[in-house]
Amino acid sequence: MPHLALDTVIDGLIRTLRDTVLPAVQERFARGQLFAAIDILHNLRDRIEPLAALATAEADSAAAALREAAAALEGAPRATVEAALIAAPLAPPLARATALRAAVTTTLAVLAQLPAGTAAQARLPLERHLAAQVMRDVMVLKPSLLEEISKG
């Protein structure tokens, strides 16, 4: 899940196009195209929101893993995990996913305090969830332009 809010990213794009790229472009048609790009971004900014399906997939996976982890625990550790599950809002999808992600982090902290043998069964569903989520996050990425960005 991205750390930067969508409006922050779009504001950054507008600023870079206007302040860094535009001054370096001399050809009039190209400058016109840049202004058009800025205009489009300005108007997109307040009309788009993150894809709900991605957040829903993460939230459902995290919730299932947490339920399984809680079932493998007893006493206070189990209660902590279940409380984090219950505290997560049902909607909107982004808020739910964010809360359940924090719940996974909390559960990992709980397990880190337990003897390895006690924690092992509870760790398995969480590790499966981490693996699946990492792959979901990677699958939506486009080919990196890091090499081009470095070389200019």
Partner: peptide, 18 residues
């Protein structure tokens, strides 16, 4: 910072977590 190269790290972190 207004350096857009910082913003691209959101697209790199999933690879690091993998």
């Amino acid at each position: 910072t207004t350096d857009l190269r910082m913003a691209i790290f959101d697209n790199q972190l999933p690879y690091l977590y993998a």
